[in-house]
Each structure stands twice: as C-alpha cells, then as structure tokens.
Nucleic acid binder design. Structure first.
Length: 427
RNA sequence: GGAGAGAUGACCGAGCGGUUGAAGGUGCACGCCUGGAAAGCGUGUGUACUCUAACCAGUACCGAGGGUUCGAAUCCCUCUCUCUCCGCCA
C-alpha cells in the first residue's frame, strides 16, 4: 500500500511512476475521492466533538442535580445527524482504502523503464562467457525415461499440471530442498521456518495477493483459508501487526513449502513438464529490514539465491526487471534465469524483490527506533532460494548423458547418499 | 465436539455507565544528586488520523463486529483467539 500522505504531496510524480508500469490508474478520481473523504471527516469529527462536550456537560449537570433538558434536546437533534455522517464517512473511507489497496507499488528510481519483459536488462551471467547449447532432450522425456517423473499417473488421478515424483525423482526433490536450506541457514545466516501451508485473507492482503489476484489462489470450501501460492505469505506475515525493536533487524527467514497456484490465466502455456504446476516445492528467502538497508539487502538476497545455482553448476543469468514487468508489490526485482538446453533458452527459476514499505503498510508491520523511539514501517523483501521443481528440470536437461542417465553435481551428492548419477531402473 | 475462565498501553495490573487515553507498578528517556555508579527524588513516556508553517486543538482506538444509552473499557448480543477440564485424534 502506498503512503497516502506521501503520494498526496506529489501526485504528478506518482502518476508518472505508475504509468511506467503500463497499467491504467485514474489518480485524479482517486484524489477527488480522498479529498471528499477528508472533508467529510472534518465535519463528522466536529459533530463528534460537540457530542462529547454535551455528554460531559450533562454528566456535570446531573451530578449537581441541575436541569439538563436543554442539552438533552440538542442531543436529540444532533444524535441522528451525527449517525448519518458517521455511516457516510465510513462508507467513503472504505472506498478510499479499496482504491488505495489496488494501486501497485511504485518502481524504484533505478529500475529500467520498459513496457514488458522485452525491456528487462541482463545485469550478469554465470559462468562468464557461457553460451548456451540446445539439445533435443526435454526434461519430461528424460524424467519419464528414467522413471522418476510420472505425468501419466498424475493426469489420470488429478488432471493437468500435476506430477508424481518417483524413486530417485522424489529423492532428488528432497535432496535439493535439504541442500538449499542447509546453505541458507549455515552459510547465509537465515533462520529456518516450517510455516503452515494455509493462510487467511489478512495475510494474503498483507503481501498483496488479495484483493486483486484472488483468481490465482486455491481457496478452501468450508474454511476461510487459502493454499499459499508462496512461502513469502506466511514468512512475511510473521511480523504482521507488530512493532519490532529496531535492534532485532534484519530478520532473515528461509522455508521450504509446497506452493499452490491455479494458473488460471496461463491456459495452454507450458502444459508439458514441470515448469508450470498447480503444486510445486520452493525454498523461500524473506528479509525484514530497516528502510535504509533494504536495497543493500536485495543485493545480498539475490546473491544468496545465485549461490544455489553456482554450487549446482547450473548456468544462469541475473535480470533486472523493467517497470512494465514488475510484480504488484515490488519496487525492484531481479529474476534469476537458468539455462535449459531442452528449451534452448533461459527460464525464470527465482525472483527476488524489494517491496520497500509497501507490504509493511498493508500488514502494519513497524519498527521502533532505538534512539528516537519513533515508529515507522519496516521494509520487506522476498526471493526464491530457489524453485525446487524447476531446479530439477535444470539438472535433468543440463546433466543428461548420451546414455540417458543424469549425473548429479558434487554439491548434491552428500544429500543423495553419495550417489553420482540417476540411471535407468527396471520397473 | 462439550463445560468453564479470560482478552486493557512495551510488560504486569486496576478500572461504581459520566471530567479515563485509561489508577498503580515495571521498563524506558531526560534532569537532580554522586568522584563514578547504585539507591533516592523530579519530569516525561501509546497508535492512527484531521487541522496547523509550527505550537495548540480535535477525532478514533481498552480482542473484532453489532446493539442499548444524552454518554460505554464498563451493560446486552454475535464472532475470533487464549487458558483449564472432558471427549476424539496424528
């Protein structure tokens, strides 16, 4: 949520920043609505002040046994009028909040301006000088042939966009997860969290999935919960409604969770394979920081995610998203894209964002300064560290051997009981 | 699922329906005192919003939402959560 006071101070600038995202936002109408609301507030509060004053006088009058009938008469007239004003004001306030909650975050100053993903900028790639090779072998072919991915069973039992991992496939997912969590907890200083996979409306509003993107979420029928689309939701909401001491920041959380997405708007895209599933595993990274350190934190967080790919020897590049490609809550985002030989191109495997105080305002997450005791919103960041299913895709396509087996990178072998390759198993 | 108890400020904890944003304590900040510290004494110490250049002033908030009343932290209703006991259960 944008800071109402701040955007009121320079509406033209805000309007211009929002326009770089490409969406349409009628700020003129919004500001008119908001000014209207403030006028209503002024008159309502005036009436409330009068009511309080009269009530006080009546109390004093009665205490001395005086005659309060004139005051009671005024109240009889003022009461209903005040009620009307209060009801109208509340409706107006809700309208303002509704509109405000639908405005996306403002892109940071150093975000490249562009209309869509074509405007994104590659900031670095690894290994240096790498030029991708393309192969005929898709991960789904490799995986099915090895017997570690079963799309057939998934399709028959559930339908599209689900997978049964079998044998070494299931074990690889588990190994990758452990490897990533160990890296982040032991070397990058994160606290490991195992959060609930369900979240309520308040949490989803806090991180920005609601109210705008409800159609992307799985919702329970009989209880007021949604399946989480990312661990960003529970992890960031750990500070919802809190005033944390400045001294405890930054908080750094990492978690493995399954993630659930309806992919409502993605019909027909990536229908084969693991790339776009209704359920997938992801290790997430979340920081809660002081405002002045959040941009540096984004660089650190991104490097932590990159380290996963380096250790797994997977070629990737880091891309700065342009204004038109930024997510709703994000002010600045780096995507990590891993090279997939089977597709002959880079695909997103991590997205690291600084939302500044945008989510913090929505969830009322604040810090108290040690020196001044002042209270202000924290900054929140999140990034995949990294998407486990897509990592498996990258392993299969990058490390497949001519005989159809797949070698396991050194860093992962301890997590596979020393196993060096995935081979055909008779079933 | 059944029965009971509770939800007040950073924390503990009072609060006959009226001048309570909320006693008292703890903590914290500043000052006095001291060679320095402790103790002691004094002062201050919620969040959000409106108005203002600023000061001042005003409004809302005592789990959430309704209601009664001239007036509700205090009375009534609903819900949520926490705790205890019983049942069930991984």
């Amino acid at each position: 949520m944008l800071d109402l006071k701040a955007i009121r101070e320079r509406p033209e600038w805000v309007d211009a920043r929002l326009k770089t995202r490409g969406g349409r936002h009628d700020l003129t109408a919004f500001f008119a609505l908001e000014a209207d609301q403030r006028a209503m507030r002024a008159t309502t509060e005036g009436l409330q002040a009068r009511r309080n004053e009269i009530s006080k006088l009546i109390g004093q009058m009665k205490a001395k046994g005086g005659d309060a009938s004139a005051l009671l008469a005024e109240m009889g007239e003022l009461g209903p009028r005040l009620k009307e004003h209060e009801v109208a004001l509340r409706a107006k306030e809700e309208a303002v909040q509704e509109e405000l909650a639908r405005l996306p975050n403002l892109p940071a100053e150093d975000v490249p301006v562009g209309p869509d993903e074509s405007g994104n900028v590659v900031v670095r790639s690894w290994p240096e000088g790498f030029s991708g090779n393309a192969t005929e072998l898709n991960h789904w072919d490799i995986g099915e042939r090895l017997g570690i991915l079963d799309f057939q069973v998934a399709a028959e039992t559930l339908g599209a966009r689900f997978t049964f991992f079998r044998g070494d496939g299931a074990r690889l997912i588990r190994a990758l997860t452990s490897f990533m969590l160990d890296l982040h907890t032991r070397e990058h200083g994160y606290e490991e969290i195992l959060p609930p996979f369900l979240a309520n409306k308040e949490s989803l509003f806090g991180t920005g999935q609601l109210p705008k993107f409800e159609e992307d979420l799985f919702c329970l029928r009989d209880d007021p919960f949604y399946l989480i689309p990312t661990a960003e939701v529970p992890l960031t909401n750990m500070v919802r409604g809190q005033i944390v001491d400045e001294a405890v920041l930054p908080l750094k959380f990492t978690a493995w969770t399954a993630c659930f997405r309806r992919e409502a708007g993605a019909a027909g895209r990536d229908t084969r394979g693991l790339i776009r599933q209704h359920q997938f595993d992801k290790v997430e990274l979340v920081w809660i920081t002081r405002p002045e350190e959040s941009m540096a934190a984004l660089e650190s967080l991104t490097l932590h995610a990159e380290e996963v790919l380096k250790r797994l020897e997977l070629p990737y590049r880091t891309v700065a998203l342009c204004t038109g490609d930024l997510g709703f809550a994000s002010a600045k985002t780096y995507d990590l894209e891993v090279w997939l030989p089977g597709q002959g191109r880079y695909r997103e495997i991590s997205s690291c964002s600084n939302t500044l105080d945008f989510q913090a305002r929505r969830m009322k997450a604040r810090l108290r300064r040690v020196e001044s005791k002042a209270v202000e919103p924290v900054h929140t960041l999140n990034g995949s560290g990294i998407a486990v299913g897509r990592t498996l895709v990258a392993l299969l396509e990058n490390f497949v051997q001519p005989d159809g087996s797949v070698t396991i990178p050194d860093a992962l072998r301890p997590y596979m009981g020393g196993q060096a390759r995935i081979e055909m198993r008779g079933r």
